[in-house]
């Protein structure tokens, strides 16, 4: 008697399973047109992501392989060829010391790109860690850390950066540290909010009942579920941080001469705006192109991971690209 019931229940659910499993990501009562458009849009988002990821990887490759790619020695001075306009021999011209600008720009990518990535990784990791701890523990620790982040938010970044330079000396590492110190609160807040949202979910209770320790809950369950928005934020921040880092170098922090860095290159040649504009415009364009590539990548990542972030109407429109 009992077995008969079991068999019936079994078959019934198997039938249910086939229909539910086969339709993929669509919900019940799926309009096949909507499913198709969803899939098309997803493939488009994926294609975009791949394209821009390749571009960004190319930029990264340039930054890593920079010394090998220079036509000239970026630090070799040749005063007889100083301040030459762009020509076939020097594609971006030369600066006041006769150094080939293009080579300096290529080498400069190391400072700009690699340190920016270091910065973003730092603030994402530290900010997330603090945010998750705050969200998970709550209580006094939460209050203390959030008030601390308030202080860092209110603190003028410039003063902080220049003060760090004053205390520790100039250089890109210190500029990175300074920017990291004032930028982590954003990630902490996001991570904290996301963690709080996850805390109330039953699946964490189920995991606890399955014998998971707190560490397991945080690392195996919470982190994977909050990683998406945090990753998107980090990707979108790369461009901004790159410009901020260049800005600090422009003001005299960060890279110290004769190290080639795009911001400091523009600053040291500022007086040449009238006589030799290429010395300023060339590094500027380098910053622009690099930031643009990473912004495009950030947008593509966002569109791929969380399509609901785009502004769309009637569900059939393009993403918030470009």
């Amino acid at each position: 008697m009992l077995e008969g019931k079991v068999r019936n229940g079994h078959t019934q659910d198997r039938a249910d399973g086939l229909t539910a499993g086969g339709a993929g990501a669509s919900s019940s009562a799926s309009d096949s047109v909507t499913v198709r458009t969803q899939r098309v849009r997803r493939n488009y988002a994926k294609a975009k992501l791949v394209v821009f990821a390749v571009l960004a990887a190319a930029v990264l490759a340039v930054a890593v392989l920079a010394p090998l790619l220079c036509g000239y020695d970026p630090y070799a001075q040749d005063l007889s060829h100083a301040l030459e306009a762009p020509s076939p021999t020097h594609l971006a011209g030369t600066d006041r010391y006769g150094r080939d600008l293009l080579s300096r720009i290529i080498v400069g990518s190391q400072s700009s790109v690699l340190f920016t990535l270091l910065l973003v990784v730092m603030i994402a990791v530290v900010g997330t860690a603090i945010g998750v701890v705050c969200g998970w523990k709550g209580d006094k620790l939460d209050v203390v850390l959030m008030r601390t982040s308030d202080v860092f938010l209110a603190f003028p970044g410039l003063v902080f950066a220049l003060a760090i330079a004053g205390v520790l000396g100039g250089g890109m590492i210190n500029a990175v540290l300074a920017l990291a110190a004032i930028s982590w609160p954003k990630y902490a807040r996001i991570a904290r909010g996301l963690t709080l949202a996850q805390k109330g979910e039953p699946y964490l209770a189920a995991a606890r009942l399955a014998g998971c320790s707190t560490a397991q809950l945080v690392f195996s369950h919470i982190l994977p579920n909050i990683a998406g928005p945090l990753l998107v934020t980090a990707m979108l921040d790369i461009g901004t941080m790159m410009m901020e880092l260049a800005g600090l170098s422009f003001l005299g922090l960060g890279a110290q001469p004769p190290v080639a860095e795009w911001g400091s290159m523009m600053s040291e040649n500022r007086s040449l705006l009238q006589t030799a504009p290429w010395t300023i415009i060339a590094p500027g364009i380098a910053i622009f192109i690099t930031v643009m590539v990473f912004n495009l990548l950030g947008d593509a990542v966002r569109d791929y991971i969380d399509p609901s972030q785009r502004g769309r109407r009637k569900g059939l429109d393009e993403s918030e690209e470009v």
Binding site: P202, Y203, A206, L209, A210, G211
Partner: peptide, 20 residues
Amino acid sequence: RAMAKDVQMVFQNPASSFDP
């Protein structure tokens, strides 16, 4: 943690009781 082998629970909301 050792209680896992002594007591288990079935929750009210099936889908959200699983890690998405």
